[in-house]
């Protein structure tokens, strides 16, 4: 029981973090029709910027300024990079973001070194908040939960309740019409790209200190973000939200299950002595999201809530 409760709490926190990362990616996709391979790199930049700002000032300033800085860089990338490459079609855009991911990683390696930096949880939040079944839940995790929720509500309000959100939504599906109505569509694109990157940066700020802040964090996070976006349905924010929570819970719950394949498929004659039978569910935890990806692509190519196919 306690394992399940804990897995649920951690799964939700991890899921919301994934959503913070994937919401930007899915927004950018529905807008430009291009998968931004460099998206996780902005997550990494957020963590490194926060480390620098926190070293010079405080964590709270880092929480505000690191995502803004990342967002500005994202906007600049769109304005001076993607927009020019856009003329040459989607393949060129894809290759551009692919190259950009490598470029950012190498620059980070040059500036911060090849190994992890000591980016720490602020001491004011470094205490156990509540105890559940004898295990402490750190205050910082609760804080992560609140930041993620605030971001979720903020994004929803922006897109669904403001005039700007209305225009963005319109520009996503009918950019030409919005342009004819007198709106500056390229500016909207740049803003959305910047916001998407800033959200990834924010995820980096709040996750970098609880995980590891090193130049390989982008490469490690990249695949899982794509899984979220594809499973949720490319371009669907709601889908990304559901998929994030699903994957967060799946990974956390799987670790807690000790059953092996032999226990589950014993009725088929599988014994724990065999190679396959001795695999436990908990050791499969990290693979499950990718298994989900494969299954979704086979049985529901448009994703859980997506409207168009890949």
């Amino acid at each position: 029981m306690e394992t399940i409760v804990f897995a649920l709490v951690n799964g939700v926190i991890y899921g919301l973090l994934l959503f913070m990362l994937s919401s930007g990616l899915t927004l950018i996709f529905s807008m430009m029709g291009v998968l931004n391979f460099a998206h996780a790199s902005f997550y990494m930049l957020g963590a490194f910027f926060a480390y620098t700002i926190m070293g010079a000032t405080s964590f709270w300033l880092a929480l505000i300024f690191a995502p803004i800085l990342v967002g500005l860089i994202g906007a600049a990338v769109e304005r001076y990079g993607l927009r020019r490459v856009h003329v040459n079609g989607h393949v060129a855009e894809l290759l551009f973001t692919f190259g950009l991911a490598y470029l950012i990683e190498e620059i980070v390696k040059i500036v911060y070194g090849k190994t992890a930096v000591n980016y720490r949880v602020p001491s004011i939040l470094d205490f156990p908040a509540v105890q559940i079944y004898g295990a402490d839940l750190p205050a910082y995790r609760i804080f992560m939960l609140f930041v993620a929720m605030a971001m979720l509500i903020g994004l929803w309000l922006l897109l669904r309740r403001t005039r700007a959100g209305l225009i963005i939504q319109a520009a996503l599906s009918h950019p030409h019409m919005v342009g004819h109505l007198g709106h500056n569509v390229p500016l909207i694109f740049m803003t959305v790209f910047g916001i998407g990157c800033a959200l990834a940066g924010l995820a980096g700020v709040i996750a970098g200190n609880i995980f590891v802040t090193d130049p390989s964090m982008a490469v490690q996070m990249g695949p899982i973000v794509f899984v979220v976006v594809v499973v949720g349905g490319i371009g669907s924010l709601e889908g990304a939200f559901v998929a994030s929570l699903l994957i967060g819970l799946l990974q956390n719950l799987a670790v807690g299950i000790n059953a092996s394949f032999a226990d589950i498929f014993g009725f088929l004659g599988l014994t724990s002595a065999s190679e396959v039978g001795s695999i436990t569910v908990s050791s499969l935890g990290p693979v499950l999201p990718f298994l989900l990806l494969v299954l979704i692509l086979i049985f529901r190519p448009q994703g859980l809530m997506g409207e168009r196919e890949l």
Partner: peptide
Amino acid sequence: GNELHPLGKVKDFTPYTQKIIS
């Protein structure tokens, strides 16, 4: 408990420590 986890892939060991506690 006798647990093996993937090498260098796990970012958050909380579920594992939780299992150890329980």
